[in-house]
Structures are given as structure tokens and as C-alpha cells.
């Protein structure tokens, strides 16, 4: 059976076009033994330009922003990264962009003007990590209650695990009656039907 998929755009071609179009921007390819998607690092101030180009260029046509996620690499500086996954429907291609964010000034320009879907995706990243997106129309908490203090997904925020009371960690609990006759089932007197 013939393969019905349209032939995709290869990510190397995308990187090449980006470098041609923005020769002065510092792109860096993420290398690693198990980095399975083609990923490019770029500086935060060029983000909106690059995204607009990726969306509008007819040969690339990355019209859909699939996901925005924050990552916290705590002992490292820059501490945070924001990862953008892009999808091109006409060309059947995916691409990943990453922006490094420092802890002292966690700000990234918003891409809501390029893809309106970034509205809630960036709010979620703000909610979890405290990374502010400058220019965002409505930056407030989305998943956690509004009065919550702290950024839960940062590595120095606790999980919030509460000790469950078992028999081995509650030595002062009320012990059950040793008289076993009390455990015998009573006949149920009250039946509804």
C-alpha cells in the first residue's frame, strides 16, 4: 500500500533557513546521545522575530504551537529553560526551540501575538515556575488557586507529601479491644427493603 503521508520538511533544512535569515542571532543546536528531536537554543530577545518568521515563511509554515513547557535545572545557571514545540501542518514537520532563562530575571517575551494558543500555555508555565512573560495580555495563575504562594514545580518546592498514619508510625494510637467476641457480626436489625 502506498505511503499516504505527505513527505515532511526535514529539520536540518529548517535550521539552515533560520541561520540564513538571522545570521547574527546565536543559535545553538542541542547535542546529546538521546536528544530525539532537533532542538535549537536561541536568545530570548530574538524569540518573537524568529517565531514570526517560522510562522509566515511559506516554505516552513509552522502555523501551530503545540506546547510550551518550563524546565528547572536547579543547580545550573541559567536555571530555567522554556521549550517551544512547533508543528507545521502543510509541511508535516516538527521543530523544537528552547530559550534559557536566568533565575535573577525570569522574563521571556510572549509569543501570544504570533500564536494565540500561547495564552494559556504561557500562563501555565508562569503558574508552575514563576517565569514572567512580558507583554502577555492576562498573566495570572491558571491551575492553582489565585492566592497560592510559591511556584510548585520548581525543584526547591516540596512535593507536599503528608505522612500517612499506619500502625508502624503511630505508637500512641488507641488499641482495639483484645476480646475477640466483640468482632462477631451482629444481625442487621434495620433493613430498608
Amino acid at each position: 500500500m502506498a505511503d499516504p503521508r505527505p513527505q515532511g520538511l526535514s529539520p536540518e533544512v529548517v535550521e539552515q533557513r533560520l541561520r540564513e535569515r538571522f545570521p547574527d542571532a546565536e543559535f545553538r543546536r542541542q547535542m546529546g546521545e538521546a536528544v530525539r528531536d532537533h532542538t535549537l537554543y536561541l536568545p530570548a530577545d530574538r524569540l518573537v522575530e524568529v517565531c514570526t518568521f517560522l510562522r509566515d515563511d511559506p516554505e516552513l509554515a509552522f502555523t501551530m504551537l503545540v506546547s510550551v513547557s518550563g524546565v528547572d535545572y536547579l543547580p545550573r545557571d541559567p536555571r530555567f529553560e522554556v521549550v517551544y514545540h512547533l508543528l507545521s501542518i502543510p509541511k508535516n514537520a516538527r521543530f523544537v526551540l528552547k530559550v534559557e532563562v536566568r533565575e535573577e530575571d525570569p522574563k521571556v517575551p510572549t509569543v501570544t501575538g504570533v500564536w494565540p494558543t500561547a495564552n494559556w500555555l504561557e500562563r501555565e508555565t508562569y503558574d508552575f515556575y514563576g517565569i514572567a512573560f512580558t507583554g502577555h495580555p492576562d498573566l495570572q495563575r491558571i491551575l492553582l488557586p489565585e492566592e497560592w504562594v510559591g511556584w510548585p514545580l520548581r525543584k526547591d518546592s516540596p512535593l507536599g507529601y503528608q505522612e500517612v498514619a499506619f500502625t508502624h508510625n503511630t505508637p500512641d494510637r488507641e488499641k482495639p479491644d483484645p476480646d475477640l467476641k466483640k468482632l462477631a457480626p451482629k444481625k442487621v436489625k434495620y433493613r430498608a427493603h
Partner: peptide, 13 residues
């Protein structure tokens, strides 16, 4: 009844 599978900051136990 008791928090179930999720014992973390977001769920009432």
C-alpha cells in the same frame, strides 16, 4: 476517602 494515589500539594487528603 484518603487522598488515594495522589499525596501531594494539590489534593486534599
Amino acid at each position: 476517602s484518603c487522598g488515594g494515589v495522589f499525596n501531594n500539594y494539590a489534593i486534599v487528603q
